[in-house]
Structures are given as structure tokens and as C-alpha cells.
Design a protein around this nucleic acid. Structure first.
Lengths: 212, 212, 212, 212
DNA sequence: CATGAATGAGCATTCATTCAT
DNA sequence: TATGAATGAATGCTCATTCAT
């Protein structure tokens, strides 16, 4: 019998073993709930369903585990595929993107990641920077590229597409993200999201639609 | 024996004794720099120039001290007086407000407060909520009230002034606050702030200016 | 009432507070019994009759506590005053010194110190070197100086007094120190010590007495 | 099923299987370098080139492995054949023995064994005792026997040959072994050894040569 | 009231040992 | 038999909190 099933080959140099993933899943939950300092390795071990010692078989220390956790969070966010087909209608694209974006951001774990990483950014600037670049800036840059395409096509008149992209994503958050992240209100409903995103889209297009 | 002589009971009922204030000043610096978990009572005592024991004379525990510190931060933010004189020109008012707002938010300590409170909001929802309401919502509500005045005067056409106020403050943050809070870039320069706030004001007025 | 009693002023910059001494006493017992690695800070705290935290008020870490303990052991050994009055009869001096030296070396704690420091010398060469120089070399050097005086007086004919001093102290250990330090036999009796030291003295003088 | 084929039962009753020896070789290096407490089973497994689990196939626990290691060290020391041919010239024999003895004792691994076993002797008296008897006492006893032979032949006049043997071996160590074992100086050079051993031999013979 | 020495529960981390494969 | 992943008790150390002075 040949061991073709990767789960039978625990983790020798295997960055993606099932156990490793299991640990990171537990760690993500605990880190995102309690923050880096608030999370204890004991609790992470319990949440991951492994012993404390096993944590250290897969990760050198708490710091490394945290970085790996954030890194994976980045990747999973980066994989979020918004539909930025340049051929697609601008208004629909913005509405769809805005709604999807806010839904991700205000989903229980979305806000926690922002919270957790922002909290530690002063002491771990690299972690903060990578998260910003891979999660926040990346998405805004994709939107900016889409907007640039629309400018080329003469549909939009935008001078600074990166700024415009940021303006749109920020506006979509209005009245939604901050109350959520400060625990004032739970995740917004789809209807609330739609209202805010429609208003943002309208203002955005009113201003940036090419006048010809 | 009635405590009529206030000098014998340094702070009973005296919420604002000099010593208490001295402690909170030290605590604010340490908490905002290192976060709740990262701050140690030792360091706070040193920063405040008192002994560790004295901390516990004025505050029951670390948690209470933190709450009091955030509360005071709220008050000092709430005292920030933006000029919302309804007689003042809308564009000028928005430009001035936007610039002042971003300058406060992106000032070294401004961001730290947001970061520190946001970080702990999951574990101390009350602290998060009070901060949101007294710092963030309060300012937006004042802006909303001003905008409502302008609507009454027929200068602006806004359906939901709270949403509009949020949209404006969020747009002003575009490309500025997030890189700053994630330690990607230092505090923005006045020129950068002006550029972004002008763009936000322009878009805002383009959309919400009454067409009559 | 003025605090003239140093025990009432715990340890602010006080290298010799009673508490510090109490900790070092406990630490010495545990370190000498179990060695550096075998000793746990918990056990030391118990032996010293203080809490674990208190250990760290007076010593930065286990390593520092160990060094301080060995250093003090050095000092107390260095203070041992053997009578090396040059006017004194050579034979009597050697007999007295030899007996006293072996008694110190083979006293329960004397051997433990040698054992403990020798054991760690590879990983803490500084500790080993200082112990050797302050305890072992110092005593031999004092003896060498005495022998040199006797050479000047024409009583002894020695070419290399340091070597001669080492030969004498080593010979005095014959059949006594090694069985003791390897736990084969308990501390030797005064009678056993006398026998060995007399034999050593006799051989030493037979060889090194000036022939004139 | 009878285990007649030794290859199917690697070591049952086979105290000296190649694997067992391989483990002990690795263990000896690690134990002698780092001491009992400082050595980890992980490191030993790595040094021996086997897995950690295999260690426990051949040895019940760390303690047993250590004992076996020391035992073997004893045997290999005991096998050291010094030339004690009674017909041989006394002075030459002592010079040769002394030099060989010090060279073994002060060879990097010689001192480590003494150090390692001495360090643990308080906690493992049996290990200490066996090492003393098989390594130290054995050699001295062989020398004592040789000396006794010379006494019989009328060449030496010694009352207590065991004491005399101990005196000689101790004198040979003078100025050499202690600085080496306390990490004050590296292994002595052959020239240094010769000087010290010659001096010891001279004093020894001066004293113990039969006067007839 | 103000102090700071003392406390001990809690933390991250290590390591001898076990066991399914 | 040989493996190495997994375990969890034990370690060195920190820090919020207490309390005698």
C-alpha cells in the first residue's frame, strides 16, 4: 500500500498538513476573538483540539503562529473574486462589489481580523503592513484598475483612480462598519447594506460619470 | 465622624483630584501605546510617577482604570469644537471640518485611541460602545445636524443626513486613515489631507447640492 | 523613629538586604544539592521561604541567581584564613594547612560547590574560571607565597613554588577527596585526614627540604 | 515460534547489537558535552542517527541510557592498559604511566566524563560509585599492585601502597587537571605534562626509594 | 493616604515519554 | 522493529493585586 493520501504523511516539511491546518483554524478563532495578547496557547490548543505541545511541533512560537494565521487570512481574503469584468455595466459592478465587500467586512470574522491586526500593528508593523497590502489595498487596487478601464472607455472621468476606489469603498462602509466593529450593532442586514451601497454608488457615479 | 474636611480624604467623591488625573494621564499614554493587554500596571505607575499601590487607591483594578481612561479620552474628543455655525458657507465648513477631523484622527494619539478601543471592543463591548457613541457618532451627528440645517435652508438636498454625514467623514479618510492605522505610512501631511478632503467635499456637494 | 535598622529598608539598591541573603541561602542549598539544571526556581523559592515572584525582585533570572550564589561561595572560601605566618615552623604550618584545607573541601558543602561549578563549567566558563581563581588558585597561591618565603630563608629548596604548592594540596587529597565527591565514602574522619596529610607533609619535606 | 534467527529480534538478550551501540555512541557524546540534565533525548536521537522512539526500544528511559553510557565509559577506561610489568624500571614506568594517565584525564572527553559523573553523583550515587571504582580506583589499584611488587623486590619502601598510588596520581595532576576541568586553560601540552610528571616522579622516588 | 515588597496564578515554552502505524 | 507525531507535566518567568508599614 502506497501512502498517496497526504493526510497519512503528517507534516515532514509539509506546510499544509491537515494537523497544521487544524491548528491554524483553532488559532484563528481564538486570536480573532481575543487578540494576540488575550489569546493563550492553552486556549488555542483547546480550540484546535490538540495538545499544547503539538502547537510547537508545527509552529516555532506564538508569534509565528499568529503571523501564519494572519497570512492565511490574507490569502483567503485575496482569493475573494469580485467580478471586475471591464465589459460589465459600471453601476451593476459597483453595486455588486460594494455589497459583497461590506458583507465580507462585516461578517463576524471579517471585522475581527481587521480589529486584531489593527490592534497589533504598532508592535508588529510587518504584520500590519502585509495585512493592509494583501487585504485592503489589494481589493482597492483591483477596483481602481477596473475604474481605469472605464475611464479609457470614456464612461468615467476620473483623475486619480486609486483615490476614487478608496472613496467608494469608504463610502460603502458609512454607518455600517464602525458601529459593527465597535460592537454597537451586529452585522448589518442585506437590506441595510443595499441602501448604503446604492447611495454610495449613486453619489460616485453622479460625480465621476463622464459628461460628454 | 463626618468627613467634612476634604483634605483628610484625598479623593472620596472627588473624582477629579490632581493625583487621580495624574494617574489617568500616565495610563492614557501607556494604554494608547501598548493596548490594554500590552500595558502593565508597573509601567503605568512609572509613567504616572506614582507607586503601584497608589493606582489601587484610586482605581479598583486595571479594568476600571482603562475604562476611566477611555471615558476621559471620549470627553476630550467630544470637547473638540468644530465650527458648525449654520450661517457659515457649506463648502468652507466641510473643508475645514474634514481637514480638522482627519488631522485629529491621524494624529499619533488619535489613531492609537481608535486602535486601542477597537481592539478591546469584543471583550469590553461597553467600552467600545461608549467610545463609538461619544467620539465617532457624536461628531457625525453634529455634522448631520449642520447638514439638516442646510437642507432646511434649501442649500442641500439630502434625504438621510446621518448617512450623508457618515459618507462625508468616511470619504475624507480615503487613502489616509487605513495606511496610517496599519502602520504602512506615517501621519499624512496637511497637503495630502487637503487634496483628499477637497475631493470628498467636491463629490459630496456635486451630489447633495440642491438643484433648484 | 528613624529607620536605622537596615532590615527595615528592604532592598532599594541594597545588594545585601536580609531578604536577598535569605534567597541566596536557599538557592545555595538547592543549587549545591541538585546542580544548576536540577534546581528549579520553585524549589529554590520554597527552600528560601519566599514566593517565586520574590526571587525575581532580587535577581534578574536563574542564571544571575546562580552566579551570585557561586560568587558568594567564592568569597566565603576566600575569607578562610590559613595561618601562613612565615615565622612559623614549616612542618606545623603544612600539617595545619593540609588538615584545614581537606576539612573544608570534604565538608558536605565544600564538595558540592566544587561539583556544582565543575559540572557547569563547560556551559558557563566565566563561572568556572572565577571559582577556580578565587577558591582553588587563590589558596594555592597563598601557600606558594609562604613556600617562597621559606626558600628565601634557606629552609626549603624549591624551584617552582606554584607547582610545589599544587603538589602539596593535591597530595593531601589522596584517597580522600575523590571517594567523597563521587559519593563512595562520606566525609573523612579527622584521623583519616591526619594520616594522609602527615604522609604528604613528610614526602613534601623529604623532597623539598634544603640540603645544606 | 522460537527466535532462533537473531536478525528478527534485533536485540532481545543481545546487549550489544549494532543499533544499541550506535545509540550509546551518540548518547555518550551528548551526555559528556551537556551533562545529564542538559542533554535532551531529542539531541541524543539526532546524534545517534535514530528516531526518538528507537531510543526507548533499547533503553527504558533516559536514566537507564545514562547509566549504560557511563558503564561503557567505565569499561573503555578500564581497558586502558598501562604497562605495569614488574620487571620494568620503576622510574620509566612511573613516568610513562603518569604521562599517559594525565593525557587521558585531560583529553577533551576524559575531563567531560569526570565532570559529568561527578555532577550527578549526589543524585545517582550508584553511578558515581561505579565510575569511581571502575575508572579511578581501578587504575590506582593497578598502580598500587605494581608498587607492592617493587616493595617485595626491595626497590621501594612503602607502607601503604594504595595511599602511595593515590599520592602519585594526584601529584601528576598538579597545576594541570583543575585549570583544565574548570575551563581556565585548555588541555595541557605534552611538554607541560612531562614537566609535572617528572617532578612528581622525582619526589615520589626520593621519598619512597628503599634506603639500603 | 502612599508606598513598594511580596504574592501566586498564569503565561509561553520544553521535553521525557507513549503509541499508532 | 522503527518511526515521529502527539502528549502533558514541569519549567522559567511575568504581572495584577494585596498589605504591612
Amino acid at each position: 500500500m502506497v501512502a498517496t493520501d497526504p493526510t497519512t504523511l503528517p507534516h515532514s516539511g509539509d506546510e499544509d498538513s491537515a494537523k497544521r491546518q487544524q491548528i491554524m483554524d483553532g488559532a484563528r478563532r481564538v486570536f480573532m476573538d481575543l487578540g494576540f495578547d488575550g489569546a493563550s496557547m492553552n486556549e488555542i490548543a483547546r480550540a484546535a483540539g490538540v495538545s499544547k505541545g503539538t502547537l510547537y511541533v508545527y509552529f516555532a512560537d506564538k508569534h509565528s503562529l499568529f503571523e501564519a494565521t494572519v497570512e492565511q487570512e490574507c490569502l483567503s481574503h485575496g482569493r475573494l473574486a469580485f467580478n471586475f469584468d471591464p465589459a460589465r455595466d459600471t453601476k451593476t459592478t459597483l453595486l455588486d462589489f460594494g455589497r459583497a465587500y461590506i458583507e465580507v467586512l462585516c461578517r463576524p470574522d471579517g471585522g475581527s481580523a481587521v480589529r486584531t491586526v489593527m490592534a497589533i500593528a504598532e508592535r508588529m508593523p510587518d504584520v500590519g503592513r502585509r495585512f493592509y497590502e494583501n487585504v485592503i489595498a489589494l481589493t482597492m487596487h483591483r477596483l481602481a484598475t477596473y475604474l481605469g478601464e472605464k475611464v479609457k472607455r470614456g464612461e468615467l472621468a476620473i483623475d486619480d483612480c486609486e483615490l476614487a476606489a478608496a472613496q467608494f469603498t469608504m463610502m460603502c462602509q458609512a454607518t455600517l462598519f464602525q458601529p459593527y466593529v465597535f460592537q454597537v450593532r451586529p452585522s448589518p442586514s442585506p437590506a441595510q447594506i443595499t441602501t448604503v451601497v446604492e447611495s454610495a454608488t449613486l453619489m460616485f457615479l453622479t460625480h465621476y460619470r463622464a459628461k460628454n
